[in-house]
Amino acid sequence: MAPATSPEWAGPWIEHLADAAGLRERPPRAQRQWNHIVAAAGADCRDALKRAGARFQSLPDTEKPNKKGCGIPHGVLLSRGPTGIVYSPPLQVDCSLALRLADMERVIQEEAEAHLSSQIVRINTLGSYACREVVGRMRPWSEGLSEHSFGNAFDIARFSPKRGRAISVLRDYVLHGEDPSTREGRFLRGVSRRLRAEGAAARVLGPDFDASHRDHLHIDCGTPRWY
Rank of each mutant, 00 (worst) to 15 (best):
A2H: 15
R193T: 14
R137F: 06
D94R: 06
R186I: 13
A211L: 11
E105H: 03
T83M: 10
T125K: 02
I14G: 03
G199E: 02
H16W: 11
S128W: 02
P140M: 15
G11P: 04
S192R: 09
A18E: 13
Q57T: 14
P161R: 01
A153S: 11
F154M: 13
D44W: 04
R203F: 04
D208L: 11
R122Q: 14
M1K: 13
V134N: 03
G222P: 10
A41E: 03
R80F: 04
A202T: 14
T125H: 00
K68Y: 14
G177E: 15
S96W: 01
R46Y: 06
R26S: 13
R214M: 09
R189I: 05
R106F: 10
L17T: 01
C45M: 05
G206K: 02
L23H: 09
G75P: 07
I167L: 13
D94W: 02
E143K: 11
A4R: 10
P90I: 02
R203D: 02
E184Y: 12
S88E: 10
P73Q: 01
A166P: 07
E178Y: 00
P73M: 02
H213F: 08
L101G: 02
L188S: 15
S128V: 07
A112C: 12
F154W: 12
E111M: 11
V135Y: 08
A54Y: 00
V204D: 11
D220I: 07
L126D: 07
A54W: 04
H148T: 03
S168E: 13
E8A: 09
I108T: 14
H176C: 14
N124G: 09
I37C: 05
Q92C: 06
F187M: 07
F209N: 03
K67A: 03
E105M: 02
D220G: 06
S79T: 09
R139T: 09
L91T: 04
